[in-house]
């Protein structure tokens, strides 16, 4: 089961992609993914319902969030109303440990994304703030990374033994599925996704010439 775990729709301020067009693109270009997760910036989209679109297109479409913490950006999978009451998703300097802790307490999981990126990646903050507690999974393949940002993320994952995921970080239609995550299990909903991430039954992969390449 392959899911792109990091994508943005027009609900995010800087994305121009409609979810319908993501589905159309995946089918037209035969992108070998089974679905994707919408990780909107600084909010959780509790309005849009993509279940019918998902059924029509044969894709699993799930919703999550990308929040901004003192250690950089973090994907939160398994967002609930109760979790949303514990911190303001719109703030830009949330304490990472609080996001990680509260997510775990509410059956969700917090995953630092593009950790090798300047300012908004976890690596840049470890030297000054120390190693954060509670992180289990990080994004080691991000489709928007530049230079050696993904290499730094992988080095951090190897050093700390973190589980690894991949996502395209797409903001326009044609970038969906550039990177993704392969799961050992079938994933049908967010609960199963959170469980698989927590157990580390996944690997980060990137699409090259129509075929998935695994990282070491």
């Amino acid at each position: 089961m392959i899911l792109d775990l990091h994508s943005h729709s027009i609900v995010s301020d800087d994305s121009r992609a409609k979810v319908e067009n993501y589905c159309q693109w995946i089918r037209k270009k035969a992108i070998p993914v089974d679905g994707f997760v919408l990780t909107e910036h600084r909010l959780y989209d509790d309005v849009s319902d993509y279940s019918a679109l998902g059924r029509e297109s044969g894709l699993l479409i799930l919703k999550a969030s990308e929040v901004e913490t003192d250690y950089g950006h973090v994907l939160v999978f398994g967002v609930t109303d109760a979790l949303r009451r514990t911190f303001d998703f719109g703030e830009i300097g949330l304490p990472l440990e609080k996001v990680v802790h509260e997510s775990a307490r509410h059956g969700a999981i917090a995953v630092p994304c593009h950790p090798g990126r300047t300012k908004v990646g976890m690596c840049a903050h470890i030297e000054t703030r120390g190693e954060p507690e509670g992180v289990q999974v990080i994004e080691t393949l991000n489709g928007g990374s530049r230079g050696n940002e993904n290499d730094e993320a992988l080095a951090l994952a190897e050093r700390k033994g973190y589980h690894r995921i991949g996502g395209s970080d797409s903001h326009i239609v044609s970038h969906i599925g550039r990177c993704a995550t392969r799961f050992e299990d079938e994933i049908h909903d967010m609960d199963e996704l959170v469980a698989a991430l927590g157990a580390g039954r996944c690997e980060a992969i990137r699409l090259e010439d129509g075929a998935w390449i695994s990282l070491p």
């Binding site: 600084r42 901004e68 950089g72 950006h73 830009i92 300097g93 990126r117 300012k119 908004v120």
Partner: peptide, 8 residues
Amino acid sequence: EKTGRSGG
């Protein structure tokens, strides 16, 4: 406001 490669 948001954060990016240039910080806050």
